[in-house]
């Protein structure tokens, strides 16, 4: 439910009346941050499927372990740490689409953790973009090489 609500604001659902988009997420190995990783991956899969999006959605958590602010908690840090704040973010419009928290934060810590998680999301966003670009660069390379071959074929024929 929270994942749906994290992704939906980015989707131009108005372009798909009377349509449902099913997203299936399978956690293969859980070591903390599954929710955020799911959102990051699902938004990429939506983009890969050609669903019109405002922007990709990136997810990342910030937290507190032994009184220190940390980014992207693993399972142990999540279970035995002091706080965990998963966040999903639309970088282009600077909107937070998912925000949860458990543990204990003073107002200053909340402020810092929020900013830290957003910085994390922005880093992940760059990787998401690179991944998409790389895929299309590969496709365009392939198409280019294929057209060259067929041209050669034409000449020979």
């Amino acid at each position: 439910m929270v994942i749906r609500e994290a992704l939906e604001p980015a989707i131009f659902a108005i372009m798909f009346p009377r349509t449902a988009i099913d997203i299936y997420i399978e956690t293969v190995q859980a070591d903390g941050g599954t929710r955020c990783a799911s959102i990051t991956a699902a938004s990429l899969a939506l983009a890969d499927a050609g669903v019109p999006l405002k922007d990709l959605v990136a997810g990342c958590a910030a937290g507190k372990v032994d009184g220190t602010l940390v980014l992207d908690l693993n399972d142990t840090e999540d279970k035995y740490g002091d706080a965990d704040l998963p966040l999903a973010f639309i970088p282009r419009t600077k909107e937070v689409t998912l925000l949860q928290m458990d543990g204990s934060f003073s107002p200053e810590e909340f402020n810092d953790a929020l900013n830290l998680a957003i910085t994390g999301c922005e880093k992940i966003y760059e990787i998401q973009r690179e991944t998409l670009k790389k895929k299309y660069a590969e496709i365009s390379d392939k198409v280019n090489s294929e057209t060259t071959t067929s041209k050669e074929g034409d000449l020979n024929g």
Partner: peptide
């Protein structure tokens, strides 16, 4: 006065400044 739990709901979004 410490924050101990947080949950966002609905498909609306919040700007970081709105959250603070």
């Amino acid at each position: 006065g410490n924050l101990c739990a947080l949950q966002k709901g609905g498909i609306g979004t919040f700007k970081p400044s709105e959250l603070l």
